[in-house]
Nucleic acid binder design. Structure first.
Lengths: 348, 348
DNA sequence: TTGAAAGCGGTACCAT
DNA sequence: ATGGTACCGCTTTCAA
């Protein structure tokens, strides 16, 4: 005896079958209508079905489609940060916007999550999200980052890493970065050409590969110059107040630098405002620069000399790489480096 | 004859059944191990299964679980914006971070998407994401917003709206806002108490309900005061340059205002810097204020007098409301208004 | 153009 | 504590 579906059960979701029964059409025809495959459906059937869909308020189940077709149409993005406010940095926000928009226009969705470094593997994204591929921006030591990457690859999904340079020989991973080293070099050369001798690089305590690369560029620019020295100041966090506190402590018993190189725009501006509060003239007595300049670099007086980041484009590019990889089975580029540009402001 | 699963098929994903076969245990026991229900599994079985899981590199399928359990463990968030960079405003970023973190700690994931007003209904989030509930922050006329909300509710999911005040009598919707009217009132009263007579409110062209409420507060504060006037300047976009352009045009043939009230911090700072470039003293000749103050309000000289927004808390609260609603079937609050606070800076 | 049946990979439910 | 089986709602596949 054929089991009859109890269609009167309350609160049951309306399914393709309900539409099929209501219209005396097969489930497949309904499916074809829903998916706009009008080639396989007669006009009469389509109209009948569309009417029933409207009448019964049918909403397709994305999950069922995913399960059956073994595709998630969804990408996960993990943002590692020590602070809970993982979207505080405009760089991250632009990156995510670029990624999200590219995916959206290709009918993919983006699931995001911020995680603290110590609880990376517990991220609910991994257990509950259902993704076709993963993106991440990681901090920490190379060993730590490598472990986390291997964890992601253990999920049998392609991985795109931002702002990283891990040397991993696997076809499932790609990296998208901006040329931080060049940026660090440019901005340092600039202040040196303006006469700075004693430089101070202000950086967050946390190890971000991007910051290390900036610093590398800074050192390279100094290497050839006679009489130019570099101090490095680590700030516990990269907030306005913490940066100023750290700088105050440093200036208490160090010679005043000629130029302060901020690891980010926010740190640069915090430093600049502190110097001004101490009655130093910027850039007359102390030059100050930022990094990853967005609108905020215009907020200060003088405006901040900084390095402009292609963050939005990096997000877009990552989306493109991922979708191509899902289609073709291979990454068209494994290691992309996008150019940055120098922005002259009034602060250096 | 029992159909035997062809386990040699290449590239097939490893499933619970594979683990069950490999360990001579039932599928359910494997499931119970995977879900940590150790109450139902003997130690010996558990160990066997765990070993096989590691060996075969089993990764659970979130989607299958979702389909079977009729829960998505996922919330969607739609951010309506005319600009593609939908995460440009720190208010949105903090809101999203608060929401995401709350959901994550309850093992829910967050899917986000920015949409332009005219393509709201086509958002891929609706068709491909698979969510239990929806959040949104909308702009546009009340009629437009209402249509979009009705569209969301047509998906049979709870909806939480941020910064809105639509009067909708349905149990499936809740609203979470900050007290923008009070904020507008506070900041206006402040500049009036400092002697401002001619006020200029600078706002984006787009209709955000939050901006309308701020303006309402501004007008309320003025209503009782003799000799205080208000002009409203609409900027095409709320970017730095567009704000300054609009202001330049306004000042070309209007009397100089005593106070400029920025609709957001970014607009306030743009206005302030323009005034300073025109050699006006801030706050001596012109006072300037912002709204939704975050770290950027410290970036300017002088720092910006502004209204501090509980954006992160709003996100958290929305997460809490949603999860409660999914558990209990009803919203514990339908219309929440979070307090804002006044922040004294140097600009007014 | 239409339809019937299998099955995606889990969990609910019930029996033992 | 363990196992058998139906089934979540859709798409794939193949036959008509």
């Amino acid at each position: 005896m054929v089991k009859k579906r109890v269609s009167s059960r309350r609160n049951r979701r309306v399914t393709l079958r309900d539409i099929a029964e209501a219209t005396n059409v097969s489930v497949m025809s309904v499916s074809n209508v829903v998916n706009g495959k009008s080639q396989f459906v007669s006009r009469a059937t389509r109209l009948k079905v569309e009417a029933a869909i409207k009448k019964l308020k049918y909403v397709p189940s994305a999950t069922s489609r995913k399960l059956r077709s073994s595709q998630e149409f969804s990408i996960g993005m993990i943002i590692m940060d020590e602070a809970p406010v993982f979207l505080a940095d405009p760089f991250i926000c632009l990156l995510v916007a670029g990624l999200s928009n590219h995916l959206s226009s290709n009918n993919y969705s983006l699931t995001i999550q911020g995680v603290r470094p110590e609880s990376f593997k517990q991220a609910s994204l991994f257990s509950v999200a259902g993704t076709d591929a993963l993106c991440a921006i990681l901090c920490g030591s190379e060993a730590d980052r490598r472990k986390n990457v291997e964890f992601m690859m253990g999920r049998h999904q392609p991985v795109v890493l931002f702002q990283d340079k891990l040397n991993i020989k696997a076809s499932g991973i790609a990296m998208v970065s901006q040329d931080d080293e060049k940026g660090g070099h440019s901005i340092t050369s600039h202040v040196i050409s303006r006469g700075a001798k004693r430089l101070l690089f202000v950086r967050p305590l946390v190890q971000w590969p991007a910051i290390e690369k900036r610093l590398k560029g800074v050192k390279k620019a100094i290497a050839r110059k006679k009489g130019v020295t570099l101090d490095i100041l680590k700030c516990e966090e990269s907030t306005f107040e913490k940066t100023q506190e750290a700088l105050a402590e440093y200036l208490a018993d160090a010679e005043v630098p000629d130029a302060i190189l901020g690891g980010t725009d926010a740190m640069g501006i915090a430093a600049m405002r502190y110097c001004q509060d101490q009655d130093f003239d910027v850039p007359g007595e102390i030059m100050v620069t930022g990094f990853n300049g967005f609108s905020a670099s215009n907020f200060s007086t003088p405006s901040l000399t900084t390095i402009i980041s292609p963050a939005y484009e990096m997000g877009q590019l990552a989306g493109q790489l991922i979708l191509d990889r899902l289609r073709t089975g291979r990454f068209s580029a494994r290691n992309t480096l996008l150019p940055v540009s120098f922005k002259q402001g009034g602060s250096a």
